[in-house]
């Protein structure tokens, strides 16, 4: 399994998709950050102003709006479809899946490497864009990330998003007949909640609970608890179930 993951992470096709996602997301995050100037209300002594400012600079950390989510979902769908379906289309899969490993372990290692790539392609440009703009206010940024508890919640936010996109795409890729169909299916299914404005499905629900938890709670532990409380079922449980179904399907379905 480790060899399989290493092989997938070194695959040039996957890395081209990774670079596409990285650069496009980075540019979108950056232009979103430069063009907005947030206004917030504060009343109180200077120490309150400092901590409120740190909170508000934390809330400007780049998150997935409509534009960013489109690129993010496209990158995830491309990665997973390429990994799970392309080798089956070209027939390479016959030699991979005939190795003495169970099918589900091959699919799981592919899904895991897709998660690693998508996670890196989103969180690295997010921090890069953030530091390229607010890097000259190091005290406030440090205060926001560590004392206000933004770092943990923000990483959790990306973990949930990545988990959702990759496991939904993996399920679709297992169900659909070839790369092209699976790519179209993934993009459609990932985009439906955005078009229909369903606030109870990702990305909206994860984004909303993150914002609400960090804007209304005061202590880092409370914030993370509130964030998890609001997004546990759709952000963690649903993706794990979908990934499980995809793994079971991979055992049932023949390689081609």
């Amino acid at each position: 399994m480790r060899a399989q993951i290493r092989w997938e992470l070194e695959d040039p096709y996957n890395l081209i998709v990774f670079m596409f996602g990285f650069i496009m997301l980075g540019i979108t995050f950056f232009s979103g950050l430069t063009s907005n100037d947030t206004v917030f209300m504060i009343v109180g002594p200077d120490s309150v102003i400092v901590s409120e400012s740190a909170k508000n600079i934390g809330l400007t950390l780049p998150r997935l709006g409509v534009e960013e989510y489109t690129i993010f979902a496209l990158t995830g769908a491309l990665l997973v479809s390429l990994m799970l379906r392309y080798d089956r289309d070209t027939g390479v899969a016959k030699s991979v899946y005939s190795l003495p490993v169970r099918n589900h372990s091959v699919v799981l290692s592919k899904a895991l490497s897709a998660m690693v790539l998508l996670f890196l392609a989103s969180i690295l440009p997010a921090f890069l864009a953030f530091f390229y703009i607010y890097g000259d206010a190091p005290n406030l940024v440090k205060k926001a990330l560590l004392e206000e508890g933004f770092l943990a919640g923000y990483i959790l936010y990306w973990v949930m998003m990545v988990l959702y996109v990759v496991s939904l795409s993996a399920l679709v890729a297992m169900l659909f007949p070839n790369t092209f169909a699976s790519l179209l299916g993934c993009i459609t299914l990932l985009y439906v909640p955005l078009v229909l404005k369903l606030r109870s499905l990702p990305p909206a629900i994860i984004d909303d609970t993150f914002f609400k938890a960090y804007a209304t709670q005061f202590y880092p532990a409370d914030r993370i608890a509130a964030f998890l409380d609001g997004s546990f079922y759709v952000g963690l449980l649903l993706p794990v179930v979908m990934l499980g179904i995809a793994l079971i399907l991979s055992e049932w379905r023949d390689v081609l």
């Binding site: 950050l33 430069t34 063009s35 907005n36 100037d37 947030t38 206004v39 917030f40 209300m41 504060i42 009343v43 102003i49 409120e52 400012s53 508000n56 600079i57 400007t60 703009i133 607010y134």
Partner: peptide, 8 residues
């Protein structure tokens, strides 16, 4: 009273 986050 108001805080403004200026991106430059």
């Amino acid at each position: 009273e108001q805080g403004i986050i200026v991106p430059s």
